[in-house]
């Protein structure tokens, strides 16, 4: 571990625990986010990302462990933490009954701005987020992307030094998603520290300086996006054999050519091979042809979250957990 004092860290958490009934939603997570960086928390639905963020934002009590933000204890000084952190949730937290402008004015007033100042800040933010035209419409008339942008704008009123973004692009179309990424990059350029959660490896890749992978409440890996990707190869060759029985034979070919252990799904005749170089795909295909093994399809893909997961945890990201499923039926 690098030697850092608390002042270099925007977030320092050790052994964070959150329990719901018998289930540990967050299980002894350590987290260190440095000032000025974008830190990504990557994991599938239900991994505990949002729960962790909520604990750090004082929205959920911390059941175990310690957490501080810019050196301020989260448990003991919730009111101070709320002054340091801007939170943008998974679901837009803006008021449906108000217009965009009224929303920003409301939050500005609540944050202690005088009315005129709150009005000016609202206008400024609406302009910056391309919402000026829709500013005086009620939120119910806003599109999903516009809501998210307004939500993010609302988190920036007080210029908090740390911004939490909980799945900022989940459910957005690709174009809006790209706009959101641009906005987040601008924030970082302005010197904010960002802690974001995401289900998408490409999003973490695009935005984050460092990434922690969370699975079933535990941190299973941490590093730069590049480090994570190299752990599964730079890309993946997905093969499907004509005869499912040929899967083992094909696996043997892959081992011989690449000295690499493929991930098999024999019942479907499928195998996934991690490649360090996409050109290796051709060598594998040629060798299969020479061995007389026929394929239905072959695709070369960049690694997905699922593959990172497979590589790190040995199970898929979407796979239900046989241990936790029955526990969920136990009343809390």
């Amino acid at each position: 571990m690098t030697v850092t004092t608390s002042t270099d860290l925007a977030v320092a958490a050790a052994g964070l625990v959150k329990t719901f009934g018998t289930q540990r939603a967050v299980d002894e997570i350590d987290l260190e986010v440095r000032r000025g960086e974008v830190f990504g928390v990557l994991g599938p639905n239900g991994a505990g990302k949002t729960t962790m963020l909520k604990m750090l934002a004082t929205l959920l009590p911390i059941d175990g462990g310690e957490a501080s933000i810019f050196g301020v204890d989260v448990r003991r000084q919730p009111h101070m933490i709320r002054q340091l952190v801007g939170v943008t949730g998974q679901y837009a937290s803006v008021d449906e009954n108000l217009t965009g402008r009224e929303n920003l004015w409301l939050f500005g007033r609540l944050l202690g701005l005088r009315s005129a100042r709150a009005k000016a800040t609202a206008a400024e933010l609406l302009e910056r987020f391309g919402l000026t035209e829709a500013a005086d419409k009620q939120i119910s008339a806003f599109s999903g992307g516009m809501r998210r942008r307004l939500d993010l704008a609302a988190s920036l009123i007080a210029r908090p030094p740390l911004i939490f973004l909980d799945e900022p692009t989940t459910g957005l179309d690709p174009r809006t998603r790209g706009q959101m990424w641009g906005t987040i990059r601008d924030l970082v350029r302005d010197g904010s520290t960002v802690l974001l959660t995401t289900q998408y490896l490409d999003e973490a890749d695009q935005l984050a300086d460092r990434v922690a992978v969370i699975d079933r409440g535990r941190k299973v890996a941490e590093g730069t996006p590049d480090e994570l990707k190299t752990s599964v190869g730079s890309s993946t060759l997905q093969l499907r054999m004509t005869e499912p029985l040929d899967t083992d034979g094909a696996a043997g070919v892959v081992r011989r050519i690449l000295a690499e252990e493929p991930v098999l799904t024999p019942e479907a005749g499928g195998l996934n091979v991690a490649l360090t170089d996409a050109n290796q795909a051709a060598e594998v295909l040629i060798a299969l042809r020479q061995a007389g093994l026929s394929i239905v399809s072959a695709t070369v893909q960049k690694p997905t979250l699922d593959e990172v997961f497979m590589a790190i945890t040995g199970h898929g990201a979407e796979e239900p957990d046989p241990l936790t499923v029955p526990q969920m039926e136990v009343p809390a």
Binding site: A57, R82, V85, G89, S93, V94, F107, L110
Partner: peptide, 13 residues
């Protein structure tokens, strides 16, 4: 139950 209350809770108020 609405999203806006999440924000109220996260604000220093």
């Amino acid at each position: 139950d609405k999203g806006v209350f999440d924000r109220f809770k996260a604000l220093p108020i």
